[in-house]
């Protein structure tokens, strides 16, 4: 199960990088970045997953003593938790830049946005 998740996450990263490298529209590039981000998170969570184990939350079904042999790795989950919020902040900054660029140049096509082409 872990293998499929890792493969899917890695493919999503590759699709995201493809989008960032080949697309002309800046909004598309930002979409590519957000896909890259999601793929990275899937890979990280997949690396922390162990077969036939449950979520790291102690309750009546999961006594404290047995927890270490029955839960998945909590550290990647904690990392991804913060990474998702950071990803949103970075996407928001990128979108604000794109909006500002559109307001001054009236286009989002990067092939028309050359240095010195300041009309």
């Amino acid at each position: 199960m872990t293998h499929i998740a890792l493969a899917g996450g890695a493919l999503l990263i590759l699709i995201g990088v493809w989008g960032m490298l080949t697309k002309k529209n800046i909004i598309r590039i930002i979409i590519g970045f957000s896909l890259f981000d999601t793929g990275l998170h899937v890979v990280l969570v997949g690396l922390g997953h162990l077969k036939n184990r449950t979520a790291p939350i102690i309750d009546s079904d999961l006594p404290r003593e047995a927890a270490a042999s029955r839960v998945v790795d909590p550290v990647p989950q904690a990392i991804v938790l913060t990474a998702i919020v950071i990803g949103l902040a970075v996407t928001a900054v990128l979108l604000a830049f794109a909006l500002k660029l559109y307001q001054s140049r009236k286009t989002l096509d990067i092939s028309e946005l050359r240095e010195g082409n300041n009309d």
Binding site: I57, I58, A67, A68, D73, P74, V75, A78
Partner: peptide, 26 residues
Amino acid sequence: LNKTARYYVENGPKETGSANVVTSVV
């Protein structure tokens, strides 16, 4: 589990009192 994760899972609920280990790590 690796060493760090094992420490968090075994001692996290006792040291921090949080049932959700991810919360105690975060």
